[in-house]
Design a protein around this nucleic acid. Structure first.
Lengths: 209, 209
DNA sequence: AACGCTATACTTAGGCC
DNA sequence: CGGCCTAAGTATAGCGT
């Protein structure tokens, strides 16, 4: 089959995409390596595959100067291809996934192909997403606090009302007690019960019968 | 002159080297961009020229996150492809700040100079921070929900008690009006209360005596 | 330095292991 | 996945502006 000119857009076929990724990934690394060698430039290249694997190349001095902290377990080998190290590292899986998710999120948010957006637009999009998330969290917290505050108000109002009623009941009972002397115990005691109710009282009641 | 095959080694001639750098640098960026577009991979490419100028391309802000620590005089130049443009645009600042904050956070968490940590350690740290953040949020939400639930319970309990007291007060008021016809109601009625407890029982009990 | 040009070297899509 | 193969598509060395 004759080779076709391909247009730069996401390859639909998964297998083809993976193959192309593998090939081009190495191509880019090689180019980076050549640029480093030819022009004495410092290069760092990091690539996350769609499946979350990490590959990277970097000129050694780059590592030292700029990202010391990301020294990978480097296995240098001989010239040809080897020094353009590509390797996967499991600890990167998490970040890769994050990236994937974020990318997907962005894509969904924009509802259009991000490939067509430039860096600036992507930045704005990302900011939007982040801002949106923050707003969600803040709003959620606000709602929580509002509900709690409202409930507390209700509570104190009820307690107040409750206390009033108790007092009233107490008063009525007292006046009743002084009337015929039947009620010696203080009904308000029941309410003093921390629980506000007590089934043992019922037992007392039942036992009486 | 016919193009010669060049061997990959440092170009001696300064001018030629610079020209080659300029050309190949763009070539690598383009390749990276294509890899990103074609294969849905995340790419970060950082290039320092021999003269110290910085160029970079990245498919997402992750790169900024990862390479946050190296601040270099950024070089801005216009290229045919704006998307693989290295630019110091304003929205970049936002991300920078975010990254700074995160970096600071990480530093504070670790309590030591991050520069001395390798990528793996950094990843773990970041994961820790993220995990910690998640835990904080989750815990906070839990607490909120618990408090709300508790308040609602209290509320219903209070309302119940309140209603009971009202009923009681009403009842007492009524019986007071009828003189001493207080004990006409059937005490067992109290037990029919679906709740299984009712302070009104106490009244019944007390009334019996 | 940047841009254009062109012939050629290099990369790689598409197949097949 | 990674290698190998071939032809087609690209990148770019070398030179001029």
């Amino acid at each position: 089959m004759v080779r076709q000119k391909i247009q730069i857009k996401k390859i639909d076929n998964l297998t083809a995409r993976q193959v192309t990724f593998s090939k081009r990934r190495r191509g880019v690394c090689k180019k980076a390596q050549e640029l480093f060698t030819l022009c004495d430039a410092e290069i760092a290249l990091i690539v996350f595959s769609a499946t979350g694997k990490l590959f990277h190349y970097s000129s050694s001095s780059m590592m030292e100067l700029i990202e010391r902290h990301r020294r990978q377990p480097e296995n240098s080998s001989k010239l040809g291809q080897p020094s353009l190290q590509l390797q996967e590292n499991n600890s990167y899986g998490v970040l890769s996934k994050m990236l994937e998710d974020k990318s997907r999120e962005l894509r969904q948010l924009s509802g259009e192909e991000l490939q067509e957006l430039d860096m600036d637009e992507l930045m704005k999009l990302e900011k939007m997403v982040q801002g949106g998330l923050n707003r969600v969290v803040e709003t959620k917290n606000e709602i929580f606090l509002k509900e709690i505050s409202s409930l507390k108000k209700k509570e104190s109002k009820l307690m107040e009302e409750n206390a009033m009623l108790k007092q009233q009941a107490d008063f009525m009972q007292k006046s009743e007690g002084t009337g015929n002397g039947i009620h010696q115990s203080n009904p308000s005691e029941c309410i003093r019960n921390s629980r506000g109710y007590d089934t043992s009282l019922r037992l007392g009641y039942l036992n009486v019968h």
